[in-house]
Design a protein around this nucleic acid. Structure first.
Lengths: 155, 155
DNA sequence: TATTGTTATACTCTATAACTATA
DNA sequence: TATAGTTATAGAGTATAACAATA
């Protein structure tokens, strides 16, 4: 009896709002990441790889909701900069196992810390607790437990 | 002392997670909206117009984080289908005031109700309360009070 | 002269189809 | 025959530049 929009109705649609907030962050991130030579999508891929710790390209495509052909190009760019590593899977030599390199991990962390300013700006209406809350909700939505450090590979 | 990821650190970055969830919904929405002849971006624009109740194209471009030139094309499509209306502002005849038509409002509502299935699928890990919570956070992030019915034009 | 909207166009993103290699 | 990855390429999305009307 505390929430405002409706009392006992289906949950409201969040798609449009998600797009707007997501886009706001992405647009600003692009200009900020330019000098480093990275783009938002690179960070997304790197962050998925950090949390999954080694996936096949096809699984990555599914997770990123990207077409497999575009994952190839994305990984080429990341591999060219030494941020990720591709190696054939021993069990099935058709597959590439993709992993974050140490440089990739450090680069990701650095980029993330530089993006703090962007998110501070876009999410200025949210307090720290609310941003934490948002993070937990999104993390849960994509299927990871909030403290993903314990879940390791299954993300 | 209750949250898990960190105790007294800056809030975590949500950009990548936002992109992933947003994209997941968008991709599925595209296929579902196809038959109606609408696309996610149309819904986003319509929903902004519904809540702002009449803006200039430039303001719309800012809100949507879109280039003004692309807003023109987007509005052309919506106007062609009778979902929005453009009229010159009396005070400044350079400006177009853009408004949702009644057809536009009904079409938006119908599309939104059809998208329930999509969001149910993508947000299956979130309970109803959590989805409501997510909605409130996003609404607040974009600058609207949770119960925006009261705030009217300033959104 | 500056601003709102428009058009034309180049650039980037994304998906479709055909190919190679492994299974 | 089917699957993982790759390449080439066409379609959609986005931004840059030049223009018309109004201020």
């Amino acid at each position: 009896m505390t929430s405002s929009p409706a009392l006992n109705q289906p949950p409201p649609r969040v798609g449009s709002l998600l797009s707007r907030v997501s886009r706001a962050i992405r647009v600003r991130s692009e200009t900020l990441l330019g000098p480093i030579g990275l783009r938002p999508r690179h960070l997304i891929a790197l962050s998925v790889l950090r949390e999954s710790g080694g996936t096949t390209q096809q699984a990555l495509a599914t997770t990123l909701e990207m077409d497999g052909t575009n994952v190839v190009g994305l990984l080429n760019e990341l591999e060219g900069r030494g941020l990720i590593e591709r190696r054939r899977a021993a069990q099935d030599r058709r597959r590439h196992v993709v992993e974050l390199t140490e440089i990739g991990r450090l680069t990701l962390e650095k980029a993330e810390s530089e993006l703090a300013a962007v998110e501070d700006e876009v999410l200025t209406n949210l307090g720290k607790d609310q941003r934490e809350q948002l993070y937990v909700l999104l993390q849960q939505a994509v299927g990871c437990a909030p403290n993903y450090a314990e879940t390791l590979n299954e993300c």
